[in-house]
Computed example of a mutant assay.
Amino acid sequence: MFVRKRRRPVSEINVVPYIDVMLVLLIIFMVTAPLVTQGVKVDLPDAEAEALSEDSKPPLIASVDASGQYFLNSGENQDQPMSAVDLATVVAEQLKLEPNTPVVVKGDGAVPYNEVVQLMVLLQRAGVPSVGLMTETPQE
């Protein structure tokens, strides 16, 4: 006579599909993380903005007017518009001579936000580690 043995139910969970899903999610996050962190690096203050101290070096002021033209407060022709390439070249040369020179962006209130961001990207590519934004004190 043939006696069949009863099999006991297996109480283990197969975790292989979960591991596969986790690896796929890990790859997706590793690929998308650098894409999410695009942008211009700006040092934001933790408190109210303060003026530059009197003993600090005079800053380079890169300006963009309402028509989108670039200006720089350095050099011979400060009131003449500059091309983006010329502005980046002058800023890069100035930073090679004096690496700790602060750089400030002065944007006209009527200029589109995109123009200010493009100027900040231009300065970042020229080697500026951090950019300040110039504002006026509100009148009460």
Rank of each mutant, 00 (worst) to 15 (best):
L87Y: 08
N73M: 05
F71M: 08
L44H: 11
D20I: 11
V128W: 10
P45C: 05
P59V: 10
P102F: 08
L72K: 10
L35V: 10
V21Q: 05
V131Q: 05
Y70L: 08
L87Q: 07
A92H: 12
S130E: 01
M82R: 03
G75K: 10
I61R: 03
V40Q: 04
A49N: 08
P129W: 10
L23A: 14
D65C: 03
D43A: 11
D108G: 13
Q80T: 09
L60A: 03
T135H: 14
G39M: 07
V85D: 04
A51E: 08
N100S: 10
D86V: 11
S74C: 09
E54K: 04
Q124Y: 01
V21I: 15
A88S: 09
K96V: 15
V117H: 01
K96F: 06
N73I: 03
T101E: 00
T32D: 08
G127P: 12
V31W: 13
V91T: 04
L119W: 02
V91G: 02
E76S: 12
L133G: 06
A126Y: 05
P129L: 00
T135C: 03
M120P: 10
G109D: 12
V42A: 00
V117E: 06
D20M: 14
N114G: 12
M30F: 05
V21R: 07
N73E: 08
V24Y: 06
M22A: 13
E115L: 09
A47S: 12
R125W: 00
V42S: 00
L25K: 06
G39T: 04
V36P: 00
V128E: 06
N100T: 08
G39I: 11
L123V: 07
I27F: 04
Q118R: 08
V116R: 02
L72M: 09
M22G: 14
L123E: 00
I61F: 02
S83W: 05
Y113R: 03
L72T: 10
Y113G: 11
V111T: 14
Q118H: 11
E48T: 03
I27K: 13
A33E: 05
V91K: 05
V104A: 10
P59G: 00
S56F: 15
F29C: 11
V121L: 07
G68F: 09
